[in-house]
Amino acid sequence: MKNFMALISGILFSLGLGLSGMMDPKKVLGFLDVTRTWDPSLAFVMGGALVITVVTFRFILKRKAPVCEQNFALPTAKDITSRLVIGSALFGIGWGLAGLCPGPAIANIFTGNVQMILFVAIMVVSMIITEKLVD
């Protein structure tokens, strides 16, 4: 049941990414290009998702436990650290360079563009190395 729901969420997540335009780097760069040919569409992606989740998360988190687990496992960190800010800034630079963030990169991996495999491979290796170095 747990794995099945993970699979369903993953499929839905990618369908949403595709439909919204997030899987198309052109669209993402158009969204980030505020001073020239700005395409604000992607603001509607976050808007659409948040309209749903702000409501559903509130109700779900009133439950004692999720359906397939004993406990919720939510992030516990509260402090705004320099690591959080520097990491997010670096991520933003990478996002702006190619128009890819992790979700759309994974969703695009086997769609026929070999460059996507390269992107995901380098992203994953740099994640592992960074984690080993900082922890």
Binding site: S9, F13, L42, G48
Partner: peptide, 24 residues
């Protein structure tokens, strides 16, 4: 805007299912 909004809603549903069933 409409396509992006509907994609966003689908993403919202996916994260909702994930939190409800897996708690993450």
């Amino acid at each position: 805007p409409l396509l992006s909004l509907s994609g966003g809603i689908v993403i919202g549903l996916a994260t909702t299912l994930f939190l409800l069933f897996l708690g993450k």
